[in-house]
Each structure stands twice: as structure tokens, then as C-alpha cells.
Simulated assay, not measured.
Amino acid sequence: MPQTLHRWIRALIIALVGTASATPALPASTLATDAVRDALATTNPAQNPTQQAAQNRAAAVAAAQSTPSTTVALTPVRGKTAIARSTAYNSVPGQTDATPFITATGTRTRPGVIALSRDLLRTFPYGTRVTIEDLSGKYSNILKNRVFIVEDTMAARKSNSVDIWMPTRSEALNWGARQIRITAVR
């Protein structure tokens, strides 16, 4: 092999070893090693096409194994909790923007939808399924075994707050303001 290819491989190995602590460990397999070695090897023009296809498949399998799944990074941590102030809202223009029945994610408001302040959205992103526990104990039987989904955002001035959508104004007023514990379930 040419000297520049040796330097490139050495630099690649050093770069990979240097970032090994930040990346998850790969399974102990020689498949990835063999695929990389075969891909870097100079190909013989007279090589059998079936051998070349097998090498391409092995390289693709190795690349798929070493590439982390993007959905894992978006999945919130199960059991993550936060204690926040909770209020309730319903779909009237005075409590929302110009589109009162549409959430920030583009879905329609319905029972089980909650809005979070922007600081809590970092911990519980859109689509997170959560349970809510009323810390006063007054509404614990209503909230028990109920799963809510984060689909809306509160005003920018709000912090550490959860807004629960309710179908009527009287239900929202009865809820009032209280301390709750929000826990991610999926």
C-alpha cells in the first residue's frame, strides 16, 4: 500500500480511539474489522463480481452496525421527573393565539394534551408521554393511571409550568393552580 494510505489509516485509528469514550462501544465482532480492511484494500480489476458484491454487502452491514440509531437520541429518558406549577387552559382566543384549537405541533386540542414552558420542553420534548401527580392530593383519583402527551407550548414568559388542556372554562377554573410532579413514561 502507498505510504499516504498508511498515514490515513493511522490517523483514522487515532481519531476513532480518541473519541471512543464519547461513542458507545461496538459489539465484539470481526465483521466490522474485516469489512473496513476489505474496503481499504486495493481492488483487483480482474476480481470476481460476486466477491466484490459480497465485500460491498459486508461493508454495508458494518456501517449499519456502527451507525447509531437516530430515534434513540430523541427518546426521552424514562422516569425523568420534575416538580412544576400546573394550571389549566381551554381553547378560547383569550388564552391562546389566533388558532385556539391547534397545538404547537399542529394537532388539534383534545383531552390528554398538555403544554409545557420552554424550559421543561428541553427535558420533556414534544411527543413525550407523561403522568401527572397532584402533590396536594386533591385530584389524585382523577389523574391516576392517566397518560398525557406533550403537544403544546406555553408563552415565553412562563417557566417551570405545565398547562393541562380542558374542554370547558369551568373545568379549567376548578383546576386552578397547584404543584404537580410530571414523570415521563415512554
Rank of each mutant, 00 (worst) to 15 (best):
P2G: 05
L5D: 12
W8T: 12
W8Q: 11
I9R: 15
R10I: 01
R10D: 03
A11E: 15
A11I: 02
L12F: 11
I13N: 06
A15P: 05
L16K: 04
L16T: 04
G18I: 00
G18C: 02
T19P: 00
T19Q: 02
T19V: 03
A20E: 10
A20C: 08
S21K: 14
S21N: 14
A22M: 14
P24W: 01
A25P: 02
A25I: 10
S29P: 06
S29W: 08
T30Q: 10
L31H: 07
T33S: 07
V36Q: 05
V36A: 15
R37Y: 05
L40I: 14
T42Q: 02
T43D: 09
T43I: 08
A46L: 13
A46H: 11
N48G: 00
P49W: 09
T50K: 12
Q51F: 00
Q52D: 06
A53I: 12
A54I: 08
Q55L: 04
N56D: 11
A60V: 02
A62P: 01
A63R: 07
S66M: 04
S66R: 01
P68K: 13
S69F: 11
T70P: 13
V72F: 11
V72Q: 13
A73V: 03
G79I: 14
T81E: 10
A84K: 09
R85D: 14
T87I: 10
T87M: 04
Q95C: 06
D97V: 07
D97N: 15
T99H: 15
T99I: 05
P100T: 09
F101P: 01
T103C: 03
A104I: 06
A104T: 14
T105Y: 07
G106W: 06
T109D: 07
R110Y: 01
P111R: 12
G112F: 06
I114P: 05
I114M: 11
A115D: 01
A115V: 01
R118T: 14
D119M: 02
R122C: 05
P125A: 06
P125M: 04
Y126F: 15
Y126K: 00
G127I: 07
T128I: 11
R129C: 07
R129A: 13
R129H: 14
V130H: 05
T131C: 07
E133H: 01
S136G: 11
G137W: 12
K138Y: 10
N141M: 03
N141I: 03
I142V: 12
K144T: 12
K144C: 10
N145T: 12
F148P: 02
I149S: 08
D152M: 10
T153C: 09
M154F: 04
A156Y: 06
K158P: 00
S159M: 04
D163V: 07
I164N: 02
W165I: 03
W165K: 02
M166L: 14
P167Y: 01
P167I: 00
T168R: 02
R169F: 04
R169T: 06
E171Q: 15
A172V: 13
A172P: 12
L173H: 11
N174C: 08
N174T: 13
W175T: 09
G176I: 08
G176Y: 08
R178P: 09
I180Q: 03
I180C: 05
R186L: 10
